[in-house]
Simulated scan of single mutants.
Amino acid sequence: MFTGIVEELGTIEAVEDQGDAIRLTVRAATVLEDAGLGDSISVNGCCLTIAERTDTTWTADVMQETLDKTSLHGVRPGDQVNLERAVTAEKRLGGHIVQGHVDGVGEVLSRTPSEHWEVVEVSLPADLGRYLVDKGWIAVDGISLTVVEAGTDRFTVSLIPETLARTTLGTRQPGDRVNLEVDVLAKHVERLLAWRDTAGTVTP
């Protein structure tokens, strides 16, 4: 589990095509301080497992399912990515509950700069619109953000200078694809209500 608070920008060092998978090597510093084989790191919101590591890089296997459903398909050496280690029990939950399981891919539609912040509009897959509410949560490329306006097929977020400087959203342009993860609690509520409507009661 993650919090959506990006710890550092890493750089894609190598992408090894394996046909129905890739091996992704990322250059990093902070997330490697206490990381070992088998640990989880969020890469642009995708939970990946460390398979190999050196003092300055780590490697993960990315299967076809992940490539089909996230923006990791098409990453190239030199690309920057948001990195976050899995949360520990003693860590403050500064963002929100993020699983690292991408629900869909959106596209940056527009950027509107202001003096002290920037509003970014992102498209939303049709089946995810019901999970968003104004002032609710969404993870965009693994970044915990507050929804400003929630539409049926798009939403906006307002980015402070810290987010612009420390994450990939500082450089994403209209047309760029971003990973989206909606609030898992909203999905659980929907599932419970659907079960009640079908069965008549909710069984503990």
Rank of each mutant, 00 (worst) to 15 (best):
K91G: 01
D103Y: 07
R85E: 00
G200N: 08
N82E: 07
K91A: 15
R76I: 09
I12L: 04
R177T: 01
S40K: 06
S158M: 15
R92W: 08
T56M: 00
I5M: 09
R196M: 10
A139T: 13
D176M: 09
L192P: 01
E149L: 10
S110T: 12
M63T: 09
V178R: 13
E33G: 00
A194W: 04
S158R: 14
V102N: 10
T88P: 01
R92M: 08
N179R: 06
P204D: 12
I97L: 15
G136Q: 05
R92Y: 03
T156V: 09
L48S: 04
D20A: 13
C46M: 03
A199L: 09
I97G: 01
D68N: 14
V189Q: 02
H96D: 04
D153M: 00
Q80G: 11
P204K: 15
I97Q: 08
V62Y: 03
D20G: 07
F2M: 04
T57G: 01
Q64L: 12
E13K: 14
L180E: 06
W137L: 10
L145I: 14
N179G: 01
G19Q: 08
T56Y: 01
V140K: 04
E7F: 03
F2V: 11
A199P: 00
L32P: 01
R27L: 08
A86V: 10
T163A: 11
G74C: 08
A126D: 14
P113K: 03
E13S: 14
S110D: 14
L109P: 13
D20M: 09
V202N: 02
S71I: 06
G175H: 11
D127C: 00
D134Y: 05
T171S: 13
T30M: 00
V184W: 04
V26C: 06
I5E: 05
G78P: 09
S71V: 07
K135V: 10
E33V: 11
A186G: 11
H96M: 10
F155R: 09
N179F: 01
L164F: 07
L180F: 00
T11E: 15
E52N: 06
F155E: 12
D20C: 03
T54M: 07
V75E: 02
H96Y: 06
S42W: 03
S71D: 14
E84K: 08
F2Y: 02
E84I: 07
R27Y: 05
N82A: 03
Q173V: 11
R111Y: 08
T49F: 01
K69W: 07
Q173Y: 00
I41Y: 03
Q64W: 04
G129R: 09
R92P: 05
V122H: 04
D141K: 00
R196V: 05
K135R: 15
H96S: 06
I22V: 14
I160S: 02
W137I: 13
P77G: 09
L185E: 01
Q80W: 01
W58I: 02
V202L: 15
E115A: 11
G78H: 14
T146F: 02
V178C: 08
S42N: 04
R111E: 08
D183I: 13
